[in-house]
Design a protein around this nucleic acid. Structure first.
Length: 825
DNA sequence: AGCACGCCGACT
DNA sequence: GTCGGCGTGCTC
């Protein structure tokens, strides 16, 4: 009996784990834990599981249960990856919020949140059996595979496809498996490899003065080795490892000498994981005092924080918001907390990052999409272990594993790039950050010179605090702003290609003064399309409902939606005419025209095409900064976060295309963009100039930009939004319905809309035809849900989710794709 | 998201 | 007869 008492039955527990897979799946799956891993599994750790026949994934343990699943036999988990949870409890809560608010799957969030390096990859590998069956009859293709396997042991499915020159290899592979000639090895590769560098240390034996002296005499006849030793003694203070690279540079002695020293055990080597991120170690103090206006704003923010969690900082351009942020960050750090500083993607490669880095030194991490996975995993771990206190990042940085988050700064909060449109989770990082702040009881500061209407509304209705900073730092003057009517100039024949005489005169003056110029051409209207002057034919994309755009650099016609491209045309394929004209104008075209007007001036272009690479953009910017180029032509990019001392003139080529964009936020966006662009002119000691070209030169938005009248813009916009029932008075949810067949789509979209209307009534609009009705061979329709602000939104979402589930379950609509976009702006 | 399986049309 | 394309269903 006593024996039975000591038997601990709890150890015989069988555990089951519910895991999230990094895939877009509607439900989570349950696996069984092998007894020997019982102690290792924990919520928030990663586990290796097989999902489906071949694939192996890293899944995340969401919960642990002792109850076996009722309706199926659970598979075993293969392994537990982590010693400690990589996902914190708070992160799970955050993920849950994203899932339910933005109506996506948990797997979508996991896929977006974890750097790929933390998700393991699997590759199916074929391996030859040690002993082949005696009677083995193989087809020609099968023996081909076996032959290769005999030479190189392992072959991946991809290689087999290449080898046989055909796509369907599974039947053949299956046959080989059935004949027991091969087996399948699942290879899980940990993608994250720390960067290892060699470090050198002097044998502690030579710490003794006597021994060292002796060593010197021994090495007298080996000058190179002596150099290395001396270099080490110079670099290393005491008994430490120093980077091999550094030692080689300092000593001037080569690898060979060093190797001899190592062989003689005078030096020892060690491989160490080092950071891939260039941490600037120059932690020099950047001393600055807040101006009295800034100091007042700072105190005001602090005061607002006593009863508000979110404060909107409305500070005009060049009012020195960055300094305020720095002071606030400093304070949060003093309290021992972490800080998340969100920036729009493109602003991350620019000066503001440098400034903040310089101030906070190696406590800071930068996180954005151009970093590779290794770097991202590194940042993830440093946030998790707390060695990074401040994170500068683009929207995905909200997913980092913060522990003691005290403050979140969202700079340029009005920026549309905080919203992710594709793929799910379609989240708005600014709004998510507000929730994240709430979760951590951290304060959130939203900063902008031109706040979004919804944030300003939140401030006006006292949901957020509001602090205004409307004095330019250091008394920098506002630029001189003028509007030129393109219509007028065209009538008087004063236009030179796209440029009004006023802009050309301004440019001439600026160039004579050796000052620099930025020309801004917004993305809309960017395209140059070809059109036949005889019959009106315009080349269209074969996969999408858009005209192809002509790119001079490649000499080809490109589709901006799917990447399709074809060679350009000289003869109209429809009518045979040779009169092909270029219509519309892009940055490329402007660059070309401009170089005809100013042949001796160096011109650079900053847009998506010229900045594909991580350094492409840096190069263009630094060339402009170093005054190697005089004129910079760009799309929105030039408006964001760039500061150039020597720029005295900003030209907006065509403001109308912005204003005419068919979107309820077009005016708001135009105001923000134009105001932002204008803020780039003459930042230091000299008053700059802004020249806005437009057909409709009396448009209220242009007037409001020139007068710097945000409040009037806000009031006008609010009146319109109220009248037409748009946010912030309502909430929008878009449902994009897609199918390859236009007829199926039309019927499906109408059916879904009807089903929704039956429950939600006139809150349902559409289905409507979107601007581009077909992308990548899929036809698209859009259903819009517009609910009143105070409606029980969660209820609407539940209805929506259920209705779509039922809809997709219908036989005819299985292949119809539906995507939900909550707050699609 | 993959991937198998099954059905169908096309061509060595 | 294969081969490749595509629609459909399933993965614990």
């Amino acid at each position: 009996m006593q024996f039975a008492d000591t038997l601990d039955f709890s150890e015989r527990e069988t555990l089951f784990v519910e895991v999230i897979l990094p895939l877009s799946l509607a439900i989570n799956y349950t696996y069984r834990v092998p007894f020997e891993l019982n102690d290792k599994v924990a919520v928030g750790k990663r586990v290796v599981v097989q999902f489906g026949k071949h694939k192996i994934y890293t899944a995340l343990v969401k919960s642990i249960d002792q109850q076996p699943p009722e309706f199926y036999q659970a598979k075993y988990i293969i392994d537990v990856v982590d010693d400690y949870p990589v996902i914190t409890e708070k992160q799970f809560e955050f993920w849950n919020w994203i899932t339910s608010y933005y109506l996506c799957n948990e797997g979508d969030v996991m896929a977006a949140a974890l750097p790929t390096g933390l998700k393991l990859a699997s590759e199916t590998i074929l391996v030859l059996k040690d002993e082949l069956p005696e009677e083995l009859e193989l087809t020609e293709k099968e023996s081909l595979i076996i032959n290769v396997l005999q030479k190189q042991q392992r072959v991946s499915i991809d290689e087999v496809i290449e080898l046989l020159g055909q796509k369907t290899v599974y039947p053949i592979v299956n046959s080989l498996l059935a004949k027991e000639a091969i087996y399948v090895a699942e290879e899980v590769i940990e993608k994250y490899k720390p960067l290892l560098k060699s470090f050198i240390k002097l044998n502690p034996f030579y710490k003794e003065e006597e021994n060292l002296k002796q060593l010197f005499t021994v090495l007298e006849r080996a000058p190179k080795q002596l150099d290395a030793l001396l270099a080490y003694l110079k670099l290393a203070k005491g008994d430490v490892f120093i980077p091999k690279q550094q030692l080689l540079e300092e000593s001037g002695s080569g690898q060979a000498a060093l190797k001899l020293l190592i062989d003689k055990e005078i030096f020892s080597v060690e491989k160490r994981a080092v950071s891939r991120l260039s941490d600037s170690n120059d932690e020099f103090e950047v001393n600055f005092e807040l101006s009295s206006a800034q100091q007042k704003a700072f105190e005001e923010i602090e005061f607002q924080f006593t009863n508000k969690d979110v404060v909107l900082l409305h500070g005009i351009t060049a009012s020195g918001k960055t300094q305020l942020y720095i002071k606030l960050i400093e304070k949060a750090l003093d309290q021992g907390g972490q800080v998340l500083f969100l920036l729009p993607e493109i602003a991350l490669t620019t000066q503001i990052v440098e400034r903040i880095k310089r101030y906070f030194g190696d406590k800071i991490g930068v996180y954005h999409s151009k970093f590779n996975d290794n770097e991202r995993v590194e940042i993830w771990n440093k946030v998790l272990n707390g060695s990074y206190k401040v994170i500068l990042g683009a929207r995905s940085a909200v997913f980092l594993p913060f522990k003691e988050l005290k403050l979140i700064v969202v700079d340029e909060e009005h920026e549309s790039s905080y919203k992710q449109h594709e793929p799910a989770p379609r989240y708005q990082a600014r709004d998510a950050a507000v929730f994240l702040g709430h979760l951590h009881q951290a304060k959130v500061i939203l900063g902008s010179a031109t706040p979004s209407i919804e944030s300003y509304y939140n401030a006006e209705t006292e949901k957020y605090g509001l602090v205004t900073l409307n004095e330019r730092f250091g008394g920098v003057q506002l630029p001189l702003q003028e509007v030129v009517s393109i219509a007028e100039e065209t009538k008087r024949k004063k236009m030179t290609s796209y440029f009004t005489s006023v802009l050309i005169d301004d440019m001439t003056v600026a160039l004579e003064n050796k000052e620099q110029i930025i020309l801004f051409q917004n993305r809309r209207g960017y395209a140059t399309i070809l059109i036949c002057a005889t019959c009106g034919y315009a080349p269209k994309c074969v996969n999408c409902d858009v005209s192809l755009t002509f790119h001079k650099t490649s000499g080809k016609l490109h589709c901006h939606y799917c990447g399709y491209h074809q060679s350009s045309i000289n003869i109209c394929p429809a009518c045979g005419s040779v009169h092909i004209e270029q219509k519309g104008f892009g940055t490329e075209r402007i660059e070309e025209e401009l170089s005809l007007i100013f042949p001796d001036i160096k011109i650079a272009r900053l847009d998506l095409d010229s900045t594909r690479t991580k350094n492409g953009m840096q190069q263009i910017i630094s060339d402009f900064q170093d005054k190697k180029t005089q004129i910079l032509i760009g799309t929105q990019m030039v408006a964001k976060g760039l500061d150039f001392d020597n720029v005295s003139l900003i030209g907006v080529i065509n403001a109308d295309t912005l204003l005419n964009y068919p979107d309820f936020r077009a005016f708001e966006r135009s105001y923000q963009l134009l105001a932002q662009v204008a803020g780039r002119a003459g930042r230091r000691d000299k008053q700059g100039k802004v020249c806005i070209q437009a057909y409709d030169d009396s448009h209220r938005i242009i007037k409001q930009v020139i007068e710097n009248n945000y409040n009037e813009m806000y009031v006008d916009e609010m009146a319109e939004r109220k009248q037409f029932n748009y946010p912030p008075f309502t909430r929008l949810i878009f449902i994009n319905v897609k199918h390859k067949d236009a007829n199926v789509l039309n019927f499906a979209a109408q059916t879904l809309a009807n089903a929704l209307k039956a429950q939600l009534g006139n809150r349902i609009l559409g289905p409507e035809q979107p601007l581009v009705a077909r992308i990548r061979n899929y036809y698209i329709k859009q259903i819009i849900i517009k609910t009143e602000k105070n409606a029980a939104i969660q209820k609407v979402k539940t209805v929506l989710k259920e209705t779509i589930k039922d809809f997709n379950a219908q036989k005819n609509f299985k292949s119809v794709i539906t995507q939900i976009d909550v707050d699609p702006y």
